[in-house]
Amino acid sequence: MMHTTVGWHVELEFREDEQHTEAAALVRLPDGSEVRAHGHATRHHTDPHQPRVGEEIAGARALNELAMQLLTKAHGEIDSASGRTSHSINV
C-alpha cells in the first residue's frame, strides 16, 4: 500500500487599527489553484486593546470561510466527476 504526503500552504495576513482587525486567508492547492477568504473583528470601545485577540477572531473567521469554500469546491468536483449531486455535510 502506497502512502502519499501532500502539503498545503495557508497564509494569513492581518490589517489592524485601534478598533478593527481584518484577516485575509489564502491556500494554494497542489493543482495550482488558490482559494481566498476574509474575516473581520471589531473591538468594543470598552474592551482593552488586545491586538492578538482581534487577530485570533478575524483569523478564525477567515479560516472558517476558507473551509466552507473548500467544501463547496470539493462537492462541485464530485458532482462533475459523478454526474450527480453530492450531499454536503454541515459543519
Rank of each mutant, 00 (worst) to 15 (best):
D47T: 00
H45G: 06
M2Y: 11
P48N: 06
G76V: 01
E22Q: 06
M2L: 13
A62L: 00
Q69W: 06
N64D: 10
S80F: 02
A24D: 03
V27F: 06
E77G: 00
T5E: 14
N90Q: 14
A37F: 06
D17H: 09
R52I: 13
A41I: 01
A37Y: 02
G39D: 00
H20D: 13
E13K: 11
E55A: 00
M68Q: 14
Q50L: 13
R52S: 10
E56C: 09
F14P: 00
I78F: 04
A60V: 07
A60L: 07
A23Y: 00
P51E: 03
A60P: 06
R28K: 13
G39P: 02
A81T: 08
V91Y: 10
P51D: 01
R84Q: 08
H75C: 07
A67H: 10
D79V: 01
T85R: 00
A67S: 13
E16T: 13
E56Q: 15
H87D: 08
D31M: 05
T46Q: 06
T72W: 11
G54Y: 06
T4E: 14
E34P: 09
H9T: 11
G59K: 06
A58R: 07
E55T: 03
T42S: 06
E22D: 05
R15I: 08
S82K: 03
A24S: 03
A58M: 07
I89W: 05
R84A: 06
E13G: 08
E18R: 10
H87L: 12
H44F: 08
A37R: 00
A62P: 01
V10T: 15
F14N: 03
T85F: 05
A67M: 03
A60T: 12
H38L: 05
Q69T: 09
E55V: 04
E16M: 14
S33Y: 12
T72G: 07
H49K: 04
D17W: 13
S86R: 04
D79Q: 05
R43Y: 01
V27Q: 09
E55R: 15
H20N: 15
Q69D: 08
H20C: 05
M68L: 14
F14M: 02
T42Y: 04
E13H: 03
L71M: 12
P51R: 02
A81S: 09
N90M: 07
R28Q: 14
S80T: 10
